[in-house]
């Protein structure tokens, strides 16, 4: 009986085919649309990792963070500071981004999980503002509002297309790890605490500890995205930890669809495309973007992932969960 039960948790063939198809499509766009296409693909991929890290908290832990960019920014700065202030070789510095973000997640998370719901959200916002302010004002160390620039050749000198491909491989690894987390006993603990912390506690789980672990994992992967972003542009600015990036991530997750693993992926894809193309068409792009987002949310209450799932169901595929 148990062997049969365990098999259900392995990725199914159709899901793997879907992932392979998506990778092939992105890689085709990356290779066939020139430099601007590759830059766009790289940005989409980085945002997919960032949004998916927030999605772990929101969709599965039911923890709404209003300060997720803090960990994205710490990722960028962990990487950039290791090179500029501690003379770590750039390749080795890559680990310091996610590491600093994870440590930030541990410190701020320990504080935030003491509260729940809106109070939790406000604390995450406060922690992010603290991070932003420190990055913005500590001129001697972080470079203040001018950020850190010129410490490396952007993308380690890789061509735009090769960087996008490399980012894609890394993103696949990150998404796979996140997928495994969600489907592990820890993921179940995160989901059960998210749905009903009192019930989960009555079953022997410590809600705060579970939430803290989720918070650190989420911060770590936001840090991976932030590090990639710093490599992509060859710089780090306080804005990376600012409200703008936090809002982008929130919009991506909600747009993509809560309660779905692929919510962050779909949201990052569509939102990044809209953000890049709508401004080319009109000067009032923010208004148009807002209207498009409103329309999507109204038409697809379960987000893009929910919409895709429904469409797949109508077509009889039923694999795109």
């Amino acid at each position: 009986m148990m062997a049969r039960l365990a098999r259900a948790e392995m990725p199914r063939l159709r899901q793997m085919l879907f992932v392979a198809g998506a990778v092939a499509a992105l890689e085709a766009v990356n290779r066939l649309t020139g430099v601007s296409g590759s830059l766009l693909v790289a940005e989409i991929i980085i945002m997919m990792v960032f949004a998916s890290s927030l999605n772990l908290l929101m969709s599965f832990g039911h923890m709404v963070s209003f300060g997720h960019a803090a960990y994205f920014g710490l990722g960028s700065y962990g990487f950039a500071l290791a090179i500029t202030r501690f003379d770590v070789p750039a390749e080795a510095a890559l680990v310091f981004g996610p590491l600093l973000a994870g440590i930030g997640g541990l410190v701020f998370g320990a504080l935030c999980v003491r509260l729940t719901e809106i109070y939790f959200a406000m604390l995450t916002l406060a922690c992010a503002q603290i991070t932003y302010t420190v990055l913005f004002q500590w001129y001697d160390f972080t470079g203040g509002d001018t950020g850190l620039t010129g410490f490396m050749t952007p993308r380690f000198g890789l061509s735009e297309a090769n960087f996008a491909s490399a980012a894609m491989v890394l993103a696949l690894v990150c998404l796979y790890v996140l997928w495994r987390v969600v489907h592990s006993p820890l993921g179940l603990a995160i989901r059960s605490v998210g749905q009903d912390r009192y019930r989960a506690e009555a079953l022997g789980l410590s809600p705060r500890r579970v939430q803290l672990v989720a918070f650190v994992i989420s911060a770590f992967f936001a840090g991976v995205a932030g590090t990639l972003f710093a490599v992509f542009h060859g710089n780090a600015f306080p804005d990376y930890a600012g409200l703008g990036f936090t809002l982008d991530a929130l919009i991506m997750v909600v747009l993509g669809g809560l309660n779905s693993f692929l919510g962050g992926v779909w949201g990052a894809l569509v939102y990044t495309l809209l953000k890049n193309f709508v401004p080319l068409m009109t000067a009032h792009w923010e208004l148009i973007l807002g209207l498009i987002l409103l329309a999507i949310v109204l038409v697809m209450p379960h987000g893009l992932a929910g919409g895709v799932k429904r469409l797949a169901g109508m077509l009889g595929w039923g694999a795109l969960r």
Binding site: L5, L188, S192, D196, R199, A200, L203, G204, L205, N259
Partner: peptide
């Protein structure tokens, strides 16, 4: 209160760890 959106099996696995 059961965990509404989890399957029966998942509900049962919450405490088993």
């Amino acid at each position: 209160r059961v965990f509404q959106s989890l399957s029966v099996l998942e509900n049962l696995r919450v405490p088993s760890a």
